[in-house]
Design a protein around this nucleic acid. Structure first.
Length: 284
DNA sequence: CGCTAGACCTGGCAGC
DNA sequence: TGCTGCCAGGTCTAGC
């Protein structure tokens, strides 16, 4: 479900709702969600206080007293809710973290793709998903020259390279399509054919778009809601994602949808074109 | 090493 | 009303 702006919005909401709360009890209803041993996970969490909530890419990092960190990835449909302990537990709730004030942080996930891992603070950088993560796009670590160099290393298409979290952290299927449209780059262009000027354009579009999406509370297409149960608003600012068959806002050509690396990919066929000498395979 | 297809899961929706 | 097949804000891994 969520890309960087949605995860950041969840983080901000959760921060206001649960930082400072002390955990009394934990229930794990679907053990695969937790990569640790369930019993150990429950025992280690009990008695801890949530001191802060950070984010790295699409990962949430719950900072707990005693130098522990609970890493949480929402994958496609993970959601957090704060409930009173006497409220009925809904069908897709898989983890319940109960606090001393009789409220509960509940993790729900229809598709059960999300994962949580408890480890010592500092060790999160050794998690396979985090250790080689690319730069945070909204931090000074994200530099055009380095971004351009990373793109030059790959022959595969630019869309797949942007989706690869090693290139830059936090982009997903929606924002990839959007920034490629903003920069007028065809999603199938080999990444090493992106010019420095195009890389500059992409770099600027990534920062501007993610900033705007965070300010709008993220994008809600189907299921995403923040920690308060509110939808985001950025879906009203999308230019290509989900707009197959509708006119491009700039040129009026009809937005096309193709498959790239198994992901639905939207683009303007008139403005996002492959260079004539490109050796690209046929686009259906 | 690079790339693709499949796995992990469930539900909504289009089409018949 | 059903049934079938396809699709979905993500990532990991097996296999070529």
């Amino acid at each position: 479900m969520p890309e960087l702006p949605e995860v950041e919005t969840v983080r901000r909401g959760l921060k206001a709702l649960v930082v400072g709360k002390k955990i009394v009890d934990v229930q794990v209803l679907w053990p695969k969600i937790v990569t640790n041993d369930s019993e150990e996970f429950k025992q280690q969490l009990a008695g801890r206080t949530i001191e802060a909530i950070d984010r790295r890419g699409k990962y949430l990092l719950f900072r707990l007293s005693g130098h522990l960190t609970m890493v949480s990835h929402l994958r496609m449909e993970g959601r957090y809710f704060l409930n009173q302990s006497d409220e009925p537990v809904t069908k897709h709730t898989h983890v319940i973290i109960a606090f001393t004030d009789r409220t509960q942080l509940r993790y729900a996930d229809v598709r059960k793709f999300g994962r949580m891992t408890l480890l010592k603070t500092g060790q999160e950088n050794q998690l396979s998903g985090i250790h080689a993560l690319g730069p945070e796009p909204l931090s000074p670590d994200f530099q055009v020259a380095d971004f351009y160099q990373r793109l030059q290393k790959h022959k595969k298409n630019i869309k797949a390279v942007l989706l690869d979290q090693h290139t830059v952290a936090g982009l997903g299927n929606i924002y990839c399509d959007e920034v490629l449209w903003l920069s007028k780059i065809h999603p199938l262009l080999p990444a090493n054919r992106v010019t420095f000027t195009q890389a500059q354009s992409l770099h600027a579009a990534i920062q501007a778009e993610l900033k705007k999406a965070v300010a709008a509370g993220g994008t809600t297409i189907r299921s995403y809601v923040d920690a308060n149960g509110d939808s985001g608003h950025f879906q009203f600012n999308l230019h290509v994602y989900g707009r197959e068959g509708q006119p491009c806002e700039r040129c009026g050509a009809l937005i096309q949808k193709i498959k790239v690396g198994g992901r639905g990919t939207h683009f303007c066929p008139q403005e996002q074109v492959l260079p004539a000498d490109s050796t690209m395979a046929v686009i259906q």
